[in-house]
Design a binder for these strands. Structure first.
Lengths: 185, 185
DNA sequence: AACACCATGTAAGCAGTTACATGATTAG
DNA sequence: CTAATCATGTAACTGCTTACATGGTGTT
């Protein structure tokens, strides 16, 4: 049910193709609602059938043809109603690393996994920082908040940043604990 | 595939019934691998069929009968192998609130949702703190880490705490941004 | 009297994943 | 020459959610 609204929300940024949306759901939206291309193509089909988005066929010469999707007024209204209601279900996290860590008996293997996660988190923070700069576009946060009509994308970006920072802090903590365990055998 | 190992990891704590596991997956494990009772009953069935857990029927007098499950040596071995491999898929988060926030056009509604999340996060932190005290059992962290044979449960607990603290910090940030927006209409 | 807890399970349906297919274009 | 990008889609499968059912016990 929520994927539907995630797609509608993504289309608030403007017209997009399924392929373009699959990039968005693999990068920025992946931070709170990941989806594979196949999910998106199916969802867009449904949304078009229900009149919440409008599809426009675009013929291209040196590229495969594509369909561009836009929110309809009905889609906008449906999304608005959804956004006004409090969430029904709590945040769900699925993290394989934590299962492994729960069961771990080899501190060295654990350490390696944590290091990898840290590298990954740092990379993600860097990419977030660049998105932030693109949004702010030289302005201060204050100026940006005054001038932009939508705050949503900025707030979800902050969530991503906050999450990865927390991740890093936790990783440091885990490394310290593991080191102590190894030190005493 | 991962639910399987989450269940095996949960059984490292000792024999448990499907019902007991459903509590665990609704509270502590929910922080990194939520599962409904129905998922668990099916998974336990499969694990028993594959010889990774052993089922023992327990007749009770003033309660419904139950089946208690224990890890077999094969199950332990399978879990050990899983825990030694690096994770295949990145952390997946599904958070309805962030979809709503991405689309939000009513700052007052947004503020209410954030307040609710904060209340919820504080509650969760409180419960984590109590779990921590039960684990430490009067000892310092150092002493606990020296004496306990498994660190896993403590590390995943720290992850939960870290996550909710980050959540709270982010909520504060969002409130500040929203306040600023409202102040200027 | 009404509700929550204990303890399991079936059935149906929806959501998400994986594999495969197509075929030209562009970058290394 | 190889791999990645663009752009879509079908099919088969696995995983997850929701509704319902049972029926005694303990709590407010």
């Amino acid at each position: 049910m929520s994927l539907k609204y995630a797609v509608l929300a993504a289309l608030l940024e403007g017209e997009a193709s399924g392929y373009e949306l699959s990039k968005v759901f693999d990068i920025s939206f992946a931070n709170f609602w990941p989806a594979t291309p196949q999910q998106l193509y199916r969802e867009l089909e449904r949304l078009a059938r229900d009149g919440l988005v409008e599809a426009r066929f675009v013929q291209q010469e040196r590229r495969p043809n594509k369909r561009m999707f836009t929110l309809t007024e009905a889609g906008r209204e449906d999304l608005r109603a959804f956004a006004a209601e409090p969430p029904r279900r709590p945040t769900a996290i699925r993290d394989e690393l934590l299962i492994k860590l729960q069961a771990v008996d080899d501190p060295e293997a654990a350490r390696a996994m944590i290091e990898e996660r840290m590298t990954w988190a740092r990379g993600k923070l860097g990419r977030y920082e660049r998105v932030r700069e693109r949004l702010l576009d030289g302005r201060t946060e204050d100026a940006y908040l005054r001038e932009s009509d939508r705050v949503g994308p900025y707030l979800t970006l902050l969530a991503g940043i906050s999450f990865e920072e927390g991740n890093l802090r936790w990783c440091e903590r885990v490394l310290a604990v593991l080191k102590q365990r190894v030190a005493q055998g």
